[in-house]
């Protein structure tokens, strides 16, 4: 689960095209710099966001990314919620396995993104959609 208090007004980026995936990366990068994540942590978060935004587009048929600055009192962080109203994920354990793909990719998107962030929460229902929440905290 994701702890912490929202600090700012979330910024939302629609994900409907390739170019929107680029915009998500840029939005996340700007926010990560603003909360002073280290360069390596910025890179990890932007990479995870890129994987998940692409998943939202390809598997979810499009959706949105909501980026918020959060705090748990001690640390600041960036939280991103990726939401789509696509087909959902029937077998979550399988989808989180390295190398498993239904889309012709490398099968590292979901499992790799999970490794790159501090908190990772996924809710999915077949026929309803998928919502993935990730958080990266400052050290």
């Amino acid at each position: 689960m994701t702890a912490g208090v929202d600090l700012g007004v979330p910024a939302t980026q629609a994900i409907r095209s390739d170019e929107d995936v680029v915009r998500v990366r840029q939005l996340v990068r700007t926010t990560a710099v603003a909360v002073r994540l280290s360069l390596v942590d910025q890179t990890k978060l932007v990479t995870a966001a890129s994987e998940l935004a692409r998943n939202t587009l390809i598997y979810g048929g499009g959706g949105s990314a909501e980026v918020t600055t959060v705090s748990d009192g001690r640390r600041r962080g960036v939280r991103i919620v990726f939401a789509d109203r696509g087909p959902g994920i029937p077998d979550l354990d399988l989808a989180l396995t390295d190398g498993y793909t239904t889309g012709g990719g490398l099968g590292l998107g979901l499992s790799g993104a999970r490794r790159l962030v501090d908190d990772f929460d996924i809710r999915t229902a077949v026929g309803e959609g998928t919502e993935i929440t990730i958080t990266k905290w400052s050290r």
Binding site: V40, Q42, T43, E51, D98, L106, L116
Partner: peptide, 14 residues
Amino acid sequence: MRPAVAITLVELGL
């Protein structure tokens, strides 16, 4: 390749 990119790539599993 930037150092942070190399670190991230390895963790990503690529």
